[in-house]
Design a protein around this nucleic acid. Sequence first.
RNA 1: GCGGCGGUCGUCCAGCCUGGUCUAGGACGCCGGCCUCCCAAGCCGGAGAUCCCGGGUUCAAAUCCCGGCCGCCGCACCA
Length: 567
Amino acid sequence: MDVSSDKYEKIVDLAARRGFFWPSYEIYGGLAGFYDLGPLGSLLKENIRKLWLDYFVFRHQDMVVLIETPVIAPEIVFKASGHVESFTDPIVTCSKCGKIYRADHLLEDILGIKVEGLRPEELTSIIREKGVKCPSCGGELEDVRTFNLLFQTNVGPYKHDVAYLRPEAAQGMFTSFKRVFNAMRYSLPLGIAQVGRVARNEISPRQGMVRLREFTIMEVEFFFDPEDAEEPDFSRFPEKLRILTADARSKGLDEVVVVRPEEAVAEGIVLNKWLAYWMSVAQAFAKELGLREDEILFEEKLPEERAHYSKQTFDQLVSISRWGWVEISGHAYRTDYDLSRHMQFSGEDMTVYRELKKPKEVTKKSVVIDQELLKEYFGSDTPRVLQALRRLSVEEVEKILSEGEVIVDGFKVPARVFRIEEVKEVVRGRRFIPHVVEPSFGAERLLLVVLDKAYYEEGGRVVLKLPPKLAPYKLAVFPLIPKEESLRTLARRIYHDAVKAGLTVIYDEDGSIGRRYARVDEIGVPFAVTVDYQSLEDNTVTVRFRDSREQIRIKSDEVIKWVLNNL
RNA sequence: GCGGCGGUCGUCCAGCCUGGUCUAGGACGCCGGCCUCCCAAGCCGGAGAUCCCGGGUUCAAAUCCCGGCCGCCGCACCA
């Protein structure tokens, strides 16, 4: 076992022991892909969530808003989104022993042929043609069916009211887009953010907290006008992005290009400027979690790796012990796919209207019908004929003009009633379906990454060098000599004042001072205040730094202000 | 799901091969007490284990056999 995997073991051990996380339902043997967050883990995740909200919502509050939508959605939503059809793997069951295989992998293993992307019926016929049997018992294989990674449930008592647990929060943003867009007074670009639980019925989740069947997703669906020339303000997050392009990957190269996001757009590496912008925000956010720039890499997904809705996808990978490069965020250019699909399936108009900066004059052909002439031909039938003729397009009328006459609703209409004229028209705006880029993070994965980056061993003891902003507890307060009532009194007063000021604080009078420092180092408390005899004389206390173990003396009534300033 | 490895106090590990003396042992941690004026000191005491689950073999199973569950690694999928 190498050093890095050893480190991971130690983190998992620490996590379970001190209360960051552990496998769910342990008393019943656990359930793969499900983890509990303990007291410290809950606080840490909340702090990660807050930091994410800061970067992705509040620092962009002129254009990004937060919403919350249900975990459960009716079947139609995921039919429209494409998940019912595409969020699947093909599987095949042995009729004799009941074992289940991934059909495409089985065929690739046994026959050594490429079958990726084939439909279930095609896979079934290959199995029949080649006489493929169950590799375990030799039994007959059933027809290939698809295994959907959506968790299915029912709403209410009726079996046919099928619903699913969402595998991403995104569909809530799409289905409520019109409401939010309206509430935000029709402004574009518009980001809709959501933090919430999602569930994916992974066939076999591994890697502990890295792959879960239920987890918290933090997403922004960012809606914009694809024709809008306005640039994102790249100067706000002046990041250099390290990008491994799909082109390089398909050539088997691992050459990383290092570019500013706006350069990546200009050079055609990233297809959309907003996609690039949010990648730079994502990197700035990752750095605040304790990652160095050289531990971050954006990997472009190959076409066959991309989700069905995406035109281009980058994963933000970060390097951690044990698993090397791990995806912490996905950045997908979803175009107008989702809104278009929901428009089709719901019948709701998902287009938006935007006024042009300058109205423009266009000349276009227009059909003019000579109504006087029409009256001569059709008399009292004129209104009916007119109504029918108005449905004709310019092209249809041009055809009629060349043919001499047309029969509409049983009326024979001569071409001479039509005339085509060029007319000038003022266009003030246009209707279109907004395009979407999506940055999407898995919160529990970030929690593991943060612990991995913060974990240090120094002199045989563990120190979690968590960024103070993320630390579950911000301050520890100790009386140096616990049996000295006067020291305890002062220490307790500082503790209560700190709690009142909104800090998370640990008070401990148990064991030697060194032991108490060690205990709080292990859970990443950045500052420890110790009350000693001098405190009683001059009203000062020591503040001890977790990372350096250095101490300074400050006035005891300034402790809280000092801590707040140093978070 | 397949293949490999594993599962014993909170944690790490010993015991398993060669079944009985294991009412399962140690270390660390935890709790109580003593001591201690700043970095896991020391002393005394204490709590804490369905030996992963189910079946089988046996007079006797933590130990041997079978099945399952869970975890880790590889394949695949993905935040």
